Amino acid sequence: MKTSHPLRQTLAAAALLLASAVSFGQNGVSKTTIVLGQSLPLTGPGSALAKPFHQGAKMYFDRVNAAGGIHGRQIELVTLDDEGYAATSAANTQKLLGQGVFSLFGFYGSPQVTMVYPLIKNSETVLFAPMAAADEFRGAQYPNIYSLRPGYSEEAAAVTKHAETVGARKFFILYAGDSESQAALDSATRVITSLGGNLLGKDTLGSAGLAATVDKVLAARPESVLLISDSVAAAPAVRALRTKGFRGAIYGFSNTGESLLAEELGPAGAGVVVVRAVPKSDGTRVAVVRELQEDAAAAKLGKPNVYMLEGYIAARVYAEALRRVGKDPTRAKLKKAIEGLDEVSVGGFRVHFTEDRVASRLVELSVIDSQGRVRE
Rank of each mutant, 00 (worst) to 15 (best):
N144Y: 05
G167Y: 08
D215G: 08
A134C: 03
T189R: 15
L97I: 01
S103H: 07
V116T: 05
V101L: 12
A157W: 06
V116H: 11
R149G: 02
G167N: 05
P150H: 03
G209C: 08
T165V: 05
G177C: 05
E154A: 15
T160K: 11
N92V: 00
L185K: 04
L119P: 00
D203C: 05
V166G: 04
L127V: 01
A156E: 05
T160Y: 09
V217S: 13
S123F: 07
R169D: 10
L119M: 07
P118N: 04
A176P: 00
S147E: 13
A129D: 02
F172D: 11
T160L: 11
I173W: 13
N92R: 07
T189G: 09
A158G: 02
T193Y: 11
G209K: 14
G197I: 01
R149S: 10
V113Q: 09
L127E: 06
E136D: 11
F137P: 00
L195Q: 10
V191I: 06
V159Y: 10
G201K: 07
T189E: 15
V214G: 08
P150C: 02
T125W: 14
L96A: 07
A176Q: 06
A208S: 14
F107H: 14
F171A: 09
K202W: 12
F105Y: 12
A163N: 06
E124D: 14
A184C: 01
A176M: 03
G139E: 14
Y152A: 11
V166I: 12
T204C: 14
L174A: 10
P118M: 08
S207Q: 09
T204P: 02
P118K: 09
L174K: 09
V217C: 13
Y108L: 14
F102W: 07
A163M: 06
S147K: 15
R169I: 04
T204E: 15
F172A: 14
L104H: 04
E180L: 12
A134P: 00
S181M: 05
L174V: 02
S153C: 07
L185W: 05
G197E: 04
V159N: 07
A129I: 01
R169K: 15
N198G: 06
M131E: 14
